[in-house]
Design a protein around this nucleic acid. Structure first.
Lengths: 200, 200
DNA sequence: CGCATGGTATATCGGGCTGATATATGACGG
DNA sequence: CCGTCATATATCAGCCCGATATACCATGCG
């Protein structure tokens, strides 16, 4: 699922410009997808040459013309096929967890900041979800997938926040003991020191 | 935090070859980081030219010589600085959630498969964590960060599994109702149809 | 009234990463 | 004896992220 497919998917919901798509990704898809202009605009251009979308340009006086993209029948079909064929992977990329893994190398102050900021970010995202939930509740016919995916995000974010709240003190205590200033590494080797896990 | 920094970090734990590093990332960092050979080998080469790591090549008969990399003082310092300066982001990239968002476009059968496979994968990862936990419990002096990060992973994975188990039927029911075969889109527009969220 | 800020809107580009592929060999099981 | 797996390094096309440029309007603040 690359950005081209992402655009195709969003366009099954309604026509949009590149700008609209970015906005849409930032709101509805924000917790499991990102795409910048640098990917979206070239993607739309390619999709147009492939006949999967049509472009309706509406010149505006002053501002640059708005290019509204519309899904074609071929585009819809292409997206459905991608949906059925693609292996639905799920990956996390987190400098946050990486930093905490190396907690013993960080000053306590920095550790606190990192945790506070992450919790704040989680709460920001949770309140976004809550707002969406309210808006959709009154509006008619929210697609099932949207509700489900939002609920998933809420469940996972809540669990993360709870874990951080409960266990953060464990990290802090260790960080204080850091005054022992990391003994010079006696040429250890990572080799085999690591639990043979291998989940494919 | 790019792959170069990742390697630096891993090398604070012990010396390693590129191969060892990949193995290490796949086990200990698997749930929040990925790095393939295509990133690791060039990264190590660059780090060596920058003097942040030293390379000790040990020729082996038959097999290609093993290149053991060791962190230098400069390398250690560089990593600590990166740790303190970097904004610790946390992002999820999920074709899984994306697919479920479009549940109304998928045949029920496919939906079931996607959910089953995700749950199976979650359980695989959880049992990996459990194994690590046991191994570390008997071994001495597991770094605090490692335990914390593993616990975080377990908390989040458990929550995800629970949510999927409880709510999957909601999706299925909707998917069955899909027989109405998506009415031809009446030229809707994404524009503004979307909750102004904007969490920075 | 002037000016800064921020939203609308498109586009480009370098640097970096993913995933696939190539190469070579030993160990192990059937 | 043969296939498969683990060890081990390396390259590369294709794709993506983040920053940057451009241009204009609306809003608000002093």
């Amino acid at each position: 699922m690359n950005v081209k497919d992402l655009c195709l998917g969003a366009l099954t919901i309604g026509d949009a410009s590149g700008y609209d798509l970015k906005k849409f990704f930032e709101t509805t898809f924000s917790h499991f997808c990102v795409a910048g202009y640098g990917s979206i605009y070239p993607a739309l251009a390619e999709l147009a040459t492939e006949g999967l979308v049509r472009c309706h340009e509406q010149p505006q006086q002053g501002r640059p013309g708005r290019k509204l993209y519309q899904l074609t029948a071929a585009g819809r079909k292409a997206f459905l096929q991608k949906l059925e064929k693609t292996a639905p992977r799920h990956t996390v990329k987190s400098d946050f967890l990486l930093s905490l893994y190396f907690a013993h190398l960080l000053p306590p102050q920095r550790l606190e900041t990192i945790l506070d900021e992450r919790i704040a970010e989680i709460e920001r995202q949770l309140s976004c979800h809550a707002r969406c939930r309210r808006q959709s509740a009154q509006g008619s016919g929210e697609p099932v997938g949207e509700r489900f995916v939002r609920g998933f995000g809420e469940a996972v974010l809540s669990a993360a926040r709870e874990y951080l709240r409960v266990h953060r003190r464990e990290l802090a205590s260790a960080s204080t003991a850091r005054s022992r200033h990391t003994p010079n590494s006696p040429r250890r080797t990572l080799r085999g020191g690591l639990h043979a896990l291998h989940h494919s």
